[in-house]
Each structure stands twice: as structure tokens, then as C-alpha cells.
């Protein structure tokens, strides 16, 4: 069972979304819907499933509907149609109280503009989620201190958010989301407002935290490289639809259309692509040497330079799943 499942989610903004939903030609384009009905088709028929402990990245340019989609998950925005399941429970059917419980205990969120409360000190910001749960003051402050330590902000507890730098503010945002021990974290472009260097630090920090915390993270970004770096899987959205969904290697190696290919242009392919992504299917031909499936092209290059023949690609169990040679590698590098 997946942790989070979305089934045919639609979101239409406008005065009468239900009516538009019912009368909609399923093939109508976004521009048509806008010009004919005055409604904005933000999310169109999105279905996906996120596994436990996975970092699932939703990548798209602004206006692609990615932020709307993630808000439909905890119903900060009410989806017009479709179903959201979390732990198999139907979120879309929940009443106010159940939904509140979900938001308090299971799903927490990190925001692009941080969304910190300017009138509360850092520690009270971090403790906010626990406070609304009704946790005792001493307990929640202790927890907040502990989480602040985790994100490297000890010593800043009693400052106000505006006294901190952008990167530090987002650490507070991260700490606030972690403090409630959520099962699922929704990150809405959390690092987009940060400087490139700080952004890289924060990405590493997130990956580092994830190694110990194993949260289910749904991460929104408009930065393809960020998506590649963080995502176990990536969904690319355009005009409210998912264009392609797959692992980073799959997307870089086999973009479904020109739109996606355009993103993969600037990708350092050698660092992203693995043997498994570029190999030819195993055809029974014998190979004398082998590589593991996760070997990146960067590591493969010296191997194929020094060896002319066919290399077998092995999975974790040691079974042959495919093969490659110098030509395969060169072609993969040249594409895009």
C-alpha cells in the first residue's frame, strides 16, 4: 500500500467549478476552458502514488499547477474532483475535525516564503504545531529545542524570525514541520527563495536528515536539477497535467516529449544516468565483464575506454538485466 495516493484529482478555479467540471470536454485545453467558461483549470486528472519513505518531487514551471496539487493533498485547497488517500484513508471524505487531526499529526508543510509567524520567537514558531495540538508548554518547548538542534539553529531560539537570514528562516520552517513528527512532509518550493549556495546547503541538509528520519516527502520545485538531486521519483507537470513520471534516470534517459527533453538539456548526464538507464535489454549474448545497475556513466567511461567488449549489467541480486558497450555509453552522453 502506498503512503499517499491521488486518484484523478481535478482542480478548477472560478465561480462555478462543479458545473464546469461536469460539462467539461475531457480533451479541452486549458486555454479553451478559460476562454469559454472563464474558469482556470489548475489541475487536470492527476493520479499518482507515493511510497513510504520516498522523496517524491513534483516539478513544473510556474502556473503548472504543482502548488495547487500539493495543497489538494491536505485540502488546504479543496479539489474539485478526485480522491486523496493517506494511509488508505480517504482524506477527501473527512470532516473538519478529522481533517484537522490529519494536519496536526500526520501531514506538515514547509512553505516557499517560509510562512513564519513574525510575532513569535523562533522557538515558539517551531512549537506552534504542538501548541495547536494542545501539548503542554514545557514539553513542546523541549521538543522545539531538540528539533532546532537537529537543523543547527541552537542558540537562536529567542530571536524573532526577521532577525534571521533567509536560509536560517527556512531552517526554522523545516524545524517547525519536523517538530510534530509528521509521517508526511509537504514542501512547497522551500528553497526557491534562497541564494544558490545556501540552496545547495539546504538540499544536502534535507537529504542528510532524510537518511535518519525516513519521512514521506512530497517536494515541489521548478528547478529540474533540484528535482534530480532530491527525488527518488519525479513527476513533471505542465498545464495542470503530469507529462512524465519516473526516476531521475528514466526521465533524463528517455524524455517522453520535447517539453521534457528541453529540461534535460542542461543536465550533466554523466552524473545522473546509470548503467540501468542506458543499457540494452539482455539478449543472451555473453559478456566477460560486468557492472552494477547503479553505476553512473561518469564511472562507466573509464571502464568502456579500457575495454572494447560487451559489459553485463547486474542488479542487486547479481542477475544480468542488460548489457552495454562503448557505443551505448557514447550515444547516451550525446543525446539531449
Amino acid at each position: 500500500m502506498s503512503k499517499v495516493e491521488l486518484h484523478h484529482i481535478w482542480k478548477i478555479f472560478g465561480p462555478n467549478p462543479q458545473y464546469v467540471m461536469e460539462s467539461l470536454e475531457k480533451s479541452a485545453s486549458r486555454a479553451d476552458v478559460l476562454s469559454q467558461t472563464g474558469h482556470v483549470l489548475a489541475v487536470r486528472d492527476v493520479s499518482l502514488a507515493v511510497g513510504e519513505g520516498e522523496i517524491f518531487v513534483v516539478m513544473g514551471l510556474s502556473g503548472s499547477g504543482k502548488s495547487t496539487l500539493v495543497r489538494c493533498l491536505s485540502r488546504l485547497i479543496e479539489p474539485t474532483a478526485g480522491k486523496v488517500l493517506i494511509n488508505g484513508e480517504d482524506v477527501t471524505a473527512m470532516d473538519e475535525a478529522a481533517l484537522r487531526e490529519l494536519r496536526r499529526h500526520k501531514v506538515s508543510m514547509v512553505f516557499q516564503r517560509f510562512g513564519l509567524f513574525p510575532h513569535r520567537r523562533v522557538v515558539d514558531n517551531v512549537a506552534y504545531g504542538l501548541e495547536v495540538q494542545g501539548v503542554e508548554t514545557a514539553v513542546r518547548l523541549a521538543k522545539a529545542e531538540q528539533v532546532l538542534q537537529l537543523v543547527g539553529l541552537n542558540g537562536w531560539e529567542h530571536h524573532f524570525p526577521h532577525e534571521l537570514s533567509g536560509g536560517m528562516q527556512q531552517r526554522v520552517g523545516l524545524a517547525r514541520a519536523l517538530a510534530v513528527d509528521p509521517e508526511i512532509m509537504l514542501c512547497d518550493e522551500p528553497f526557491s527563495a534562497l541564494d544558490p549556495l545556501i540552496r545547495r546547503d539546504m538540499q544536502n541538509e534535507l537529504l542528510h536528515l532524510q537518511q535518519t528520519l525516513h519521512k514521506t516527502i512530497i517536494f515541489i520545485t521548478h528547478d529540474f536539477l533540484e528535482a534530480l538531486k532530491l527525488g527518488d521519483r519525479i513527476a513533471i507537470m505542465k498545464d495542470g497535467e503530469i507529462v512524465q513520471l519516473g526516476t531521475p534516470e528514466e526521465i533524463v534517459a528517455r524524455p517522453v516529449n520535447d517539453y521534457v527533453r528541453e529540461f534535460t538539456r542542461d543536465v550533466p548526464r554523466a552524473k545522473v544516468l546509470t548503467a540501468a538507464a542506458v543499457m540494452n535489454p539482455a539478449d543472451g549474448a555473453t559478456a566477460e565483464q560486468s557492472v552494477t545497475a547503479e553505476t553512473t556513466l561518469e564511472a562507466l567511461i573509464p571502464r568502456v575506454l579500457s575495454y572494447d567488449g560487451l559489459l553485463a549489467v547486474l542488479d542487486e541480486a547479481g542477475t544480468v538485466i542488460g548489457s552495454l558497450d562503448r557505443r551505448t555509453v557514447l550515444l547516451a552522453l550525446a543525446e539531449g
Binding site: 487531526e101 494536519r103 501531514v107 510562512g115 504545531g129 495547536v132 495540538q133
Partner: peptide, 10 residues
């Protein structure tokens, strides 16, 4: 954004 954050935390 402050309102949304508060809402998101239930």
C-alpha cells in the same frame, strides 16, 4: 502565508 501555515498545522 501566515494564515496558510497556521491552517496547515491544523
Amino acid at each position: 502565508d501566515a494564515l496558510e501555515a497556521a491552517e496547515a498545522f491544523g
